[in-house]
């Protein structure tokens, strides 16, 4: 039986983890590779890097992080942030990422999704959607960290990118992001039920029950969280055991320590 996935997400800026990871003794908690190795050993089902480096010229630093992570962690790795061209996707995949997450570039040019999927396969293309509620059961796509409205309906957009060949949707509620009040379950369920590809729920996790809700009520295939793991509130293992206890199918395989 296919298991629900728990995906920790690390924000990376100029090759360093923003805010660091507190849950385990690391020599350098700001090194994304060390954090990735720790999450790998903790039983994370996948890993996500979100690059928030302002300058596109510093891309080499991120690629080096991806390369070193792929050498040390034998688990799926998604990288997003600033993915604008086919070459950006190619460079990430060649560095060892398994999936590239694209957001703004897809909003401005839907054909980019099709091109990426045709070139590298749907399994490589994650479309990230940042959505805000604008009415009863209506959500709109926002860019620039939720500051810029686009006028695009989130559900119609999700269906469109799925039909263009996206392999997965990373759905973040900008209303809930950082609020710790749980996923926007209406949004998550509406999108998950509207598309045939897997949806990753993101934005708003504050408790382990929120993770359960994202799968059970939100119909998501995976849940993504950042702060509850980074700050040591909960470990990946605690989260997955909690979800299993709630009756969700989870992978609880023993992990070997993945020393570099």
């Amino acid at each position: 039986m296919l298991k629900a996935r728990v995906i920790p997400c690390l924000d990376v800026k100029d090759g360093r983890v923003v805010k660091g990871v507190n849950f385990v003794d690391l020599r350098d908690a700001g090194d994304p590779v060390e954090c990735a190795i720790a999450y790998d050993a903790a039983g994370a089902d996948e890993l996500c890097f979100l690059d928030i480096t302002a300058s596109h010229e510093e891309r080499g630093v991120l690629l080096d992080v991806v390369r070193r992570t792929a050498e040390a962690c034998f688990m799926p790795l998604t990288v997003g942030g600033g993915v604008r061209t086919i070459d950006d996707i190619r460079n990430l995949l060649l560095a060892g990422a398994d999936k590239a997450s694209i957001m703004t570039a897809a909003v401005h040019n839907r054909d980019f999704v099709r091109q990426g999927a045709e070139k590298f396969g749907s399994q490589c293309i994650v479309v990230a959607i940042d959505a805000k509620q604008v009415g009863p059961s209506r959500w709109e796509i926002f860019t620039h960290g939720g500051r810029k409205p686009t006028g695009i309906d989130a559900v119609a957009y999700a269906q469109e990118v799925a039909s263009l060949g996206a392999g997965e949707i990373l759905l973040t509620s900008m209303d809930r992001d950082g609020a710790k009040s749980g996923f926007d379950l209406d949004l998550t369920r509406t999108i998950a039920d509207a598309v045939s590809i897997p949806v990753i729920a993101s934005g708003g996790v504050g408790t382990l029950d929120h993770l359960v809700d994202g799968i059970r009520e939100g119909h998501a295939s995976a849940v993504l969280a950042a702060s509850i793991f980074h700050f040591g509130e909960f470990t990946i293992g605690e989260a997955k055991r909690h979800m299993a206890k709630a009756g969700l199918p989870m992978r609880l395989d023993p992990q070997t320590a993945s020393a570099p």
């Binding site: 039986m1 296919l2 298991k3 629900a4 996935r5 089902d45 749907s122 399994q123 392999g167 997965e168 045939s196 590809i197 897997p198 295939s221 995976a222 992978r251």
Partner: peptide, 9 residues
């Protein structure tokens, strides 16, 4: 059941 079959089984 979503397509692709994606994840741990």
């Amino acid at each position: 059941l979503k397509i692709p079959h994606m994840g741990w089984n």
